[in-house]
C-alpha cells in the first residue's frame, strides 16, 4: 500500500528529473564546448553575500585571479564584484539559468583541464547519456515486440530461432561482446555516428530479455480461452494482437522500459568511459568520468566527480520508479468467484 501511495510521485519525479536535465542543458550558463583558456582546472566559484567590508549584499562573485606560481590554483579579488542574476537572457538569445555579470565568471562546479564549465558539461552530458538510454530502450523494445510476438504467435521454427537467439545473447557477458562488436566498427567516428553506433549496439544486445518476457505473455495469452473464443468469431491474427494481446503487453513494456533505461544508460556510460562511445569534445557522463580517473585525487580536483553524483542520483531514482512500476503493472488476476 505504501508503494502505491508513492507510485505517482516517483514516476513524476523521474520524468521531471530528466526533463530538468535536458531543460537545464538548454539553459546552461556556458556552452559545453566553450573554453576559458585562462581558467583551466578552476575550483567551483564561491557565491558570496558578504563583501570584504562585512556588508550584506545581493549574491555576487569575486573576480577570479589565476595565481602566477602554478596552473590550476586561483585567488579571489573581492574588490571587484560581479552580481549574480537568475534567468537572464544571454547574448545568443537563450535564457540562461544564472550568470555573473560579465566579464565575471561563475563556474558552479569548477572547470576542467581546458577551462570548460563542468556544470554546463554535466547537464549536456546527462542529456547525451539519457538520450542514448532512451533511444536504445525504444529500439530494443521494438525489436523485442517484433521478436516476442512472432515467436509467441507463430510458434514452430520461428519461435525456436528467436528463443534460441535470445538465449544465446543472454548467455554472453554483455560488456565483452559490446567491446568486441565495437572493435569491429571504426573507432574514430564523428560524434553523431558514435552515438548511433552506441544506440544500435546496445539495443541489439539488449532486446533478448524483454523479448523472452513478451514471448511468454503472448504465448500464455494465445492459449487463453478468450482468444480461442475470438478465433471462433473469425478473428484473424491482427485483430487478436490489437485487441487481446497488445493490451496485455502494455504493462510489461512499461515496466521493462523503466528497468532498461537506467541499465542502458549505464552501458553507455561504460562504453564512453572506455573511450568507445561519443568522444570529445561532446560530453557524456562516461567521457567526463574517464578523465576524472587521473585527476580526482592526484590533483585534488574533486569537483570533476560531479557527473558521478548526477549519475548516481539518476540511477537511484530510476531504480525506485522501476520497482514501483513493476509492482503496479503486474497483470491483475481475476478473482475466480463462483456463485
Amino acid at each position: 500500500m505504501r508503494e502505491c501511495a508513492w507510485r505517482l510521485p516517483a514516476a513524476v519525479t523521474l520524468l521531471s528529473w530528466y526533463m530538468l536535465l535536458a531543460g537545464l542543458a538548454w539553459m546552461a550558463p556556458y556552452s559545453w564546448r566553450e573554453q576559458h583558456r585562462d581558467f583551466p582546472a578552476a575550483p567551483p566559484t564561491r557565491i558570496r553575500m558578504v563583501d570584504p567590508a562585512g556588508e550584506w549584499r545581493m549574491p555576487f562573485v569575486c573576480k577570479m585571479v589565476p595565481s602566477s606560481d602554478s596552473v590550476g590554483s586561483y585567488g579571489e579579488d573581492c574588490r571587484v564584484r560581479y552580481p549574480v542574476s537568475l534567468l537572464q537572457p544571454a547574448g545568443d538569445g537563450r535564457m540562461v539559468l544564472f550568470r555573473a555579470e560579465s566579464p565575471g565568471l561563475l563556474f558552479l562546479f569548477g572547470t576542467d583541464d581546458l577551462g570548460r564549465d563542468v556544470f554546463s558539461r554535466s547537464l549536456a552530458g546527462g542529456t547525451v547519456t539519457f538520450a542514448t538510454g532512451l533511444l536504445a530502450t525504444m529500439v530494443a523494445l521494438l525489436l523485442a515486440i517484433l521478436g516476442g510476438c512472432l515467436a509467441g504467435l507463430l510458434g514452430g521454427w520461428p519461435d525456436l530461432m528467436i528463443s534460441r537467439g535470445a538465449e544465446l545473447l543472454m548467455a554472453l557477458p554483455v560488456l565483452y561482446v559490446l567491446l568486441a562488436l565495437r572493435a569491429a566498427l571504426p573507432i574514430q567516428t564523428p560524434p553523431a555516428v558514435a552515438f548511433a553506433l552506441a544506440v544500435g549496439l546496445i539495443s541489439i544486445l539488449g532486446w533478448a530479455r524483454p523479448a523472452r518476457l513478451l514471448r511468454g505473455v503472448v504465448m500464455s495469452t494465445r492459449n487463453e480461452g478468450y482468444v480461442m473464443a475470438a478465433r471462433g468469431f473469425g478473428a484473424g491474427p491482427i485483430y487478436l494482437l490489437r485487441k487481446h494481446i497488445f493490451p496485455r503487453l502494455r504493462g510489461v513494456l512499461g515496466a521493462q522500459a523503466a528497468i532498461l533505461i537506467p541499465e542502458f544508460m549505464l552501458v553507455e556510460v561504460a562504453l564512453s568511459f572506455l573511450g568507445l562511445g561519443v568522444a570529445e569534445p561532446v560530453p557524456s557522463w562516461g567521457t567526463m568520468l574517464s578523465s576524472v580517473q587521473y585527476d580526482l585525487v592526484a590533483d585534488r580536483r574533486w569537483w570533476l566527480g560531479f557527473p558521478a553524483v548526477l549519475l548516481t542520483l539518476s540511477i537511484l531514482l530510476s531504480g525506485q520508479v522501476a520497482r514501483t512500476l513493476e509492482l503496479q503493472l503486474q497483470p491483475v488476476a481475476v478473482a475466480p468467484e463462483e456463485s
Binding site: 487463453e224 480461452g225 478468450y226 473464443a229 471462433g232 487481446h244 493490451p247 491483475v332 481475476v334 475466480p336
Partner: peptide, 15 residues
C-alpha cells in the same frame, strides 16, 4: 456454427 467454450471465467477477457 458457434462454440461456447468450457470454463466461462477464462473464455471472457477479464479487462
Amino acid at each position: 456454427v458457434q462454440l461456447v467454450l468450457q470454463d466461462a471465467a477464462r473464455a471472457l477477457n477479464p479487462w
